[in-house]
Design a protein around this nucleic acid. Sequence first.
DNA 1: ATGGTTGCCTCGCAA
Length: 227
Amino acid sequence: MSYLADIRALARKDLLLELRGLGYHVEAAGQRAYNGVALLSKEPARDVVKGLPGDPADEQARYIEASFGGLRVASIYLPNGNPVDSDKFPYKLAWMERLCAHAEGLLAGESPFVLAGDYNICPGDADVYDAAAWRGDALCRPESRARFRTLLHLGLTDAFRALHAEPHVYTFWDYQAGRWYRDEGLRIDHLLLSPQAADLLSACVIDKGPRGKDKASDHTPIWCELA
DNA sequence: ATGGTTGCCTCGCAA
């Protein structure tokens, strides 16, 4: 298992068939036009769970989790939360609190797992091209960052930061205002590892290649290797 | 600068 897929591409049936033709199993939880998450794997998924536990009324397709061998993997699409004066921001914060509660339950199993995806959280000022300009944005707000730190304090490891100290490495560049060409982005896609997974971490790479292609997603892949 | 770009839910909305 390596790349995070941009779920938006899976709306294309031809791509889904192409992925299967390449030997991938695809588990997806999607919503027409809006949210969606997926897991692509070379071996079949076991014990697939769709939806983040903790709020049965939440209809948004932002969480899928399954096992592959001895590894549990979740793909998440954390709410963006903008604008911060709308109900979207408290929804984001509540969603993060549910994720923390669910992570606690997973951690109690003392097994390797990865919570991967678009967190829509820029963890620190070193993870954004202009910290001052983004201070009030839901991706950078202190309330958002505090809840991300809670996940780390529970015992999860930010796989990229565990292996790379350099600042201003990004996974997302807005389509607008030439952000990609200026390398003005944010690091908002993360792989959070349980202690048992972190013990196996041998590499974590942000691959900028796909973002530079025609018709690219505004995100680029991050992958890690557990050896 | 409340701009700018992208893709679907298409002439508005979310990102």
